[in-house]
Simulated scan of single mutants.
Amino acid sequence: MTLRPLTVWDAGVLQPMLDDPAVRAAMRWDIDQNRDAARWLTSVIQQQEHPHYRFVYTFGVVLDDTDVLAGVVMVTIAREDEHAVPPVLQAELSIFLAPEHRGHGHAGRALRRVREWCFDDLAVLDPFGGSAPMGEVIAACLPTNDASRSMLGRLLVPRGTVEAASRRGGGTVTALKFGLTRAERREHPGR
């Protein structure tokens, strides 16, 4: 498996993924909203190139044996605590895969690789200026998503529930939160 930056040329392959009701539910996107892949990719790429208060990194999950774009991993970097000095960064991971690529372990391998990248390579970079360590990697899933709940439980430590903003008609949804701090990573190297 290879992780590579997404380009607008991926729009044709991504459109069916963005139209998938399971992806829309997991990403908390409005089911009825037209999500045009080319516009979405352009927006994501612009955020990567011109970040304001957060950094967003987006990777295509490419299967080596087929060279097929199987899905997308997104990493959103923010400050754990806006007032902490020195600042400590937090990375929120999200992933979605095409239906035919689910259930084969691709999501777990991709998220493990991105999690390690966040701790090892982003630890010395601070997108907000200066130097700051990656304090925690987090992710969330809907309680009804058994596969994601199981996978995240193997990669991160359960943190309970959190009310997450819903982009599906407003309001909030209850999500299961998982995380792994730098100290927990040292304590549980097999995780």
Rank of each mutant, 00 (worst) to 15 (best):
A37R: 10
W40Y: 13
W40D: 12
L41F: 07
V44F: 02
V44M: 12
Q47T: 05
H52K: 12
Y53A: 12
F55W: 13
V56A: 07
Y57V: 01
F59P: 02
G60S: 12
V62G: 06
V62L: 05
L63N: 02
D64E: 15
D65P: 01
D65G: 09
T66Y: 06
T66D: 09
D67F: 03
V68Y: 02
V68S: 09
L69I: 04
L69R: 10
L69N: 10
L69P: 07
L69K: 07
A70C: 13
V72A: 06
M74H: 06
V75A: 15
V75Q: 04
T76G: 00
T76W: 00
I77R: 00
A78T: 14
A78W: 00
E80T: 14
D81M: 11
E82G: 12
E82L: 15
E82C: 07
H83K: 13
A84F: 07
V85T: 13
V88T: 14
V88K: 11
L89P: 05
A91V: 03
A91W: 05
E92M: 10
E92K: 09
E92Q: 13
L93A: 08
S94C: 03
S94Q: 12
I95C: 15
F96I: 00
A98F: 00
P99Y: 05
H101S: 04
R102K: 12
R102V: 11
G103R: 09
H104F: 11
H106W: 14
H106N: 10
A107P: 10
G108L: 09
G108V: 07
R109G: 11
R109K: 15
A110Q: 10
A110N: 10
A110V: 09
A110W: 08
L111G: 04
R112Y: 05
R112V: 00
R113T: 15
W117G: 03
D120G: 01
L122S: 01
A123W: 10
P127M: 03
F128K: 04
G130W: 08
A132D: 02
P133E: 08
G135F: 04
G135D: 06
G135P: 08
E136D: 02
A140K: 05
C141I: 04
L142W: 01
N145E: 14
R149P: 03
S150L: 13
S150A: 15
G153F: 06
G153I: 04
G153D: 12
G153H: 09
L156D: 14
L156H: 11
G160R: 08
G160Q: 12
G160N: 13
V162L: 13
V162S: 06
V162R: 13
E163H: 12
E163I: 00
A164W: 02
A164L: 08
A165T: 03
A165V: 02
A165N: 01
S166K: 05
S166W: 00
R167H: 15
R167W: 11
G169C: 06
G170K: 02
G170W: 04
G170M: 07
G171N: 08
G171Y: 03
